[in-house]
Amino acid sequence: MKLPIYLDYNATTPVDKRVLEKILPYFTEHFGNAASRSHLYGWTAQDAVENARQQIADLIGAEAKEIVFTSGATEANNLAIKGLYELFSTSKNHIITVETEHKAILDVCKHLEKLGCETTYLKPDSAGLISLEQIENAIRPETFLISVMYANNEIGTIQPIREIGALAHKNDILFHTDATQVLGKVAIDVDADNIDLLSLSGHKLYAPKGIGALYIRKKSKASQLIAQIDGGRHERGYRSGTLNVTGIVGLGEACEIAKNELLAENQRLSILRDKLEQGILQNIADVQVNGNIENRLPNLTNISFGGVDGENLLMSFRDIAVSSGSACTSATVEPSYVLKAIGLDDNLAYATIRFSLGKFTTEEEIDFTIKYVKEVVESLR
């Protein structure tokens, strides 16, 4: 068993060896530009891109032409929200979202507020859930978008996405979801879930970093969103720039693997997650699990440890790689805004650890982690 044990899969994942094997030829042998339409090198690259586009679409129940490649979910979120605001700004200027969204949503909304956009930030309950009643009460005549993360990246809570989407459509409002953390962990059907726009990223799915996509429903006003990067009108005019063929091939292959292995892998991960969680709860006093226990990501548990200094706790975990929250905010000294939003005080929020498991996590590693966490916590107390 190699130390430190990696239990931070919600931050990023290693590239699956099968994905790596698939993309290697596109660095050297099939290195063509997918926009080069006059020779075999370009055609080969373009064929690979279109195959990957179909693989991604198949995983979420979309059509291949509804997939637009980006550099990641952050760019996809920016394209979706800024692109729609630019489309609607002369007639509508109101967005509904949630306090516990990823910064890639919250910061975009803050930016648009400087341009005249208005945002309602819904406060979740203690499990991280929002209600349809909250959304309904927040809807205005000028609301053009509801954006709700499919599952929270810190506590794993899964929102009632299908019902939210139906409510949005009932009120002629577009619905966007950041599905970065659920891709490959939860079965997604964009039609059944009433989703107009969906953001995803490769590096959470055992594909390379620097590649992602935005699903844009073609039979909705979402298809009219305004591009945010100009220069060449790539991706049917939605996103200009030379395509990252190697990353795209990797993302497509990762989606294909996830589609075939999702059910079995999720069952395995939920068993390991529950073993880790119960092992900690049964062996360490004054701990609590945060989030919605009934409906959450199968690979994640978010646990608070009372009676310890939060900074010392995280720094003491030398033999396991874990985090106190989102990788995008881990450099800050502030307690997690997600945990604060669901009611934790500063001290407990600081002393909270996110354990996120992945396809290379073993039962031996979980057994070690339970004993190791107990030793560290007791020594700090």
Rank of each mutant, 00 (worst) to 15 (best):
I5M: 11
A11R: 15
D16L: 09
K22Q: 10
I23Y: 02
P25A: 01
F31W: 10
G32T: 00
L40Y: 10
G42Y: 02
A45W: 04
A57R: 08
T74M: 10
N77H: 06
L79S: 04
A80S: 12
K82M: 11
S91P: 01
C109V: 08
Y121D: 03
L122C: 07
G128L: 03
P141M: 04
P141K: 14
S147I: 05
N152H: 07
L167M: 06
D172E: 12
T177A: 07
I195K: 11
S199E: 04
G210Y: 05
I211Q: 05
Y215W: 01
Y215E: 02
Q228H: 09
D230N: 11
G231P: 06
R233N: 07
R236G: 00
R236D: 09
L243K: 15
V245H: 00
A254I: 03
N260G: 08
Q267W: 08
R268F: 09
I271E: 15
D274E: 14
Q278C: 11
L281H: 09
N283R: 14
V287N: 02
N290T: 07
G307F: 05
V308G: 01
M315W: 14
S323Y: 00
S324T: 11
A331C: 10
A349K: 10
S356T: 05
F360I: 13
V377H: 05
